[in-house]
Design a protein around this nucleic acid. Structure first.
Length: 420
RNA sequence: GGCCCUAUCGUCUAAUGGCUUAGGACGCUGGGUUCUCAUCCCAGUAAUCCGGGUUCGAAUCCCGGUAGGGUCACCA
């Protein structure tokens, strides 16, 4: 039975790199009918941050990457927090100490390196080997009573029956140390697969300080979780039929480690913007309505949102653009005067629109266009002034549709206000 | 610096020794549709890091350079 895990440490927020690793682990587990485990590596008490644990749960859940076992839901191999597994680590330390494979050093315990070459067959990179001397006598148990990362990881992976360790490339150099522990304990090591690490425009590993890596940022910027997941799938992996837009289910169906590239991709949100627009355009209107309603925390009424959606749906690249595109539908903006004939245009429009008895789309279209013809206006100029008068912007959805939804009273009111 | 990993258009990538004048997508540019902006459609732009080998044949295999990255903690 395939068992994989992700092991974030609660030192901040939910990181997009964690999400990326989680995504590939999730897909591998589901594809192979296995289990996906979430384990918290909180052995550095000084660095643990309040709320980070919750942020990790929320971030992964938002993306739809759910786990089968974890600190919050428990499981057969609980506990799933390293700080709650201290006794277990101590037992293994004793074993190593007794057999002479580790020794005490200034209150800590060091692993005794055997100096023999260590290699493994990486599932994405092929054979990797390290000269034995590189490994050194490293600390496995700190004087503060906590195990080090390299030690705790191995013990937990053994006990939690992890079959495949799928993680970021930055862990390659830890791997020989971990393998040495497996060997000392006489345990079979799992398969390793080292994913490429996401880079920024400078080709450096994504950093907290300079790059947008907090999942909450993506949410607040109006990205859809499905779009972000789809984008992440495309980094280091490609659809066998070169499809660009597909959902998590399809990814799981098609996923395998062989298709994973070795080179570290640059996390360039340009393509994410496009993907997000594609999703916004293609998902059902009722779903978009709910997304917008929730995104703006109920600020706009659902009924009005759904009337406006057809006008903005293929103009939005993210949820924040709903407001920049259609904000004027909810509140008056300062009118904008575009052409020199502004007054004539607006007066004529007022005239045409106030004469309409039954407020319908077709009547509005006809009333306006007839006016343009009878007055000999330039069509483009006329509609631009009309748009700018009502919205305060040169860019809006089709203005006749807006006029219809706004209603006769409001439109006439705005037109006359813009003449003052 | 030691060790390790990597290397196809600006970016994400396809190609698993021959169907390749290296394909797709994003972006960008131009055009069509249009009351603006988008959508949609059409076209264009642009890459196998360099040098040696192996082979009838190399983006693909090998070696060497170069470049980039990762890692060298009682952090994870």
């Amino acid at each position: 039975m395939v068992r994989v895990r992700i092991a974030p440490s609660p030192t901040g927020f939910a990181h997009v790199g964690t999400a990326y690793t989680a995504l590939f682990n999730y897909a591998f587990a589901k594809k192979n009918g296995g289990k996906f485990v979430l384990r918290l590596e909180d052995t550095d008490i000084k660095r643990n941050v309040e709320g980070a644990e919750k942020a990790i749960y929320e971030g992964l859940t938002w993306l739809g990457l759910t786990w089968d076992e974890g600190p919050d839901i428990g499981g057969k191999y609980a506990p799933y927090k390293q700080s709650e597994r201290l006794e277990t680590y101590k037992q293994y330390i004793e074993r190593l100490l007794d057999s002479g494979m580790a020794y005490r050093d200034e209150g800590a315990v060091r692993f005794k390196n055997t100096n023999s070459e260590i290699s493994w067959n990486d599932k994405v990179r092929g054979r990797i080997s390290f000269p034995g001397e590189e490994i050194g006598d490293f600390v496995i148990f700190k004087s503060d009573g906590f195990p080090t990362y390299n030690f705790a990881v191995v013990i937990d992976d053994i006990l939690m029956k992890i079959t495949h360790v799928i993680r970021g490339e930055e862990h390659i150099s830890n791997t020989p140390r971990q393998i040495a522990i497996y060997q000392a304990l006489g345990e079979k090591m799992p398969f390793f697969a080292h994913l490429p690490t996401l880079r920024n425009k400078d080709k450096k590993k994504l950093s907290k300080r300079r790059d947008p890596v907090d999942l909450r940022i993506f949410r607040s910027h109006g990205y859809l979780p499905q779009a972000l997941v789809n984008f992440l799938c495309l980094l280091g992996w490609s659809h066998p039929k070169e499809k660009e837009i597909f959902d998590l289910g399809e990814f799981v169906e098609l996923f395998n480690l062989e298709r994973v590239r070795k080179a570290g991709p640059i996390f360039d949100t340009e393509k994410l913007n496009w993907i997000n627009g594609e999703y916004l355009r293609k998902i059902p209107k009722s779903k978009v309505k709910n997304q917008i309603f929730e995104f703006y925390k109920g600020k706009y009424p659902k009924e009005l949102i759904s009337r406006i959606i057809p006008l903005v749906q293929n103009r939005m690249r993210n949820l924040t653009e709903f407001e920049s595109l259609a904000g004027f539908m909810f509140e008056r903006k300062k009118p904008l005067r575009v052409t020199d004939s502004f007054e004539w245009h607006i007066k004529a429009a007022f005239d045409a629109l106030s004469g309409i008895k039954k407020w319908e789309r077709q009547a509005i279209d006809e009333g306006l266009i007839n006016k343009v013809k009878s007055e000999g206006f330039k069509t483009g100029d006329f509609f631009m002034d009309l748009r700018a008068s009502l919205s305060g912007s040169r860019v809006t959805p089709p203005i006749n549709d807006c006029i219809y939804i706004l209603g006769k009273d409001e439109v006439l009111e705005r037109l006359s206000l813009s003449l003052k």
